[in-house]
Simulated scan of single mutants.
Amino acid sequence: MLRDLADVLLDLHEGMTAASQRWHTGVRLVDAQMALPMEVRAVFRDGGVVLQADVLRNLADAGWLAQPSRLTLTWSETPVETLP
């Protein structure tokens, strides 16, 4: 089931934060990267367009997609350089 992309991103961030809190005391997560296969769909709602998405959980989920979309995320405590 697809959800608003904002909700998916929030869940990914909360999961990463929870994982970092399980590590040893004194270890702090300052940078993390993820590259995930995603199903993404634009949906018309309330006079606008909303992106809905979710992470593909197995190959059967992606069977009908010619090539699944990939979402690449980077969370960092330091600013990331902008691309030229």
Rank of each mutant, 00 (worst) to 15 (best):
L56D: 00
G26M: 06
P68T: 00
T74W: 04
L73V: 10
T78H: 06
T74Y: 03
L51A: 09
L56K: 01
L56A: 00
M38N: 04
E81L: 08
A42N: 12
R3C: 14
V40W: 06
V30C: 14
A53N: 02
V30D: 13
A32W: 09
V80N: 03
T74K: 07
L83T: 09
D54M: 13
D46K: 15
Q21V: 05
G63S: 02
L10D: 13
D46S: 15
V43D: 12
V55P: 02
T74N: 06
D54Q: 15
H24Y: 11
M34C: 11
A62E: 01
V27Q: 10
R45G: 15
V40H: 07
Q67L: 04
H13A: 14
N58T: 08
R57C: 07
G15R: 02
E77Q: 06
E39K: 03
R45T: 15
M16D: 11
D31F: 03
E14V: 09
P84I: 05
E39M: 01
P37H: 00
R28L: 09
L12P: 01
V50Y: 12
Q52E: 15
G63C: 01
L12E: 01
V30R: 13
D11L: 08
S76E: 10
L51N: 08
D11W: 05
T78D: 04
M34K: 12
D61Y: 00
L36Q: 00
R22W: 04
R41C: 08
E81I: 06
D4H: 14
L56E: 00
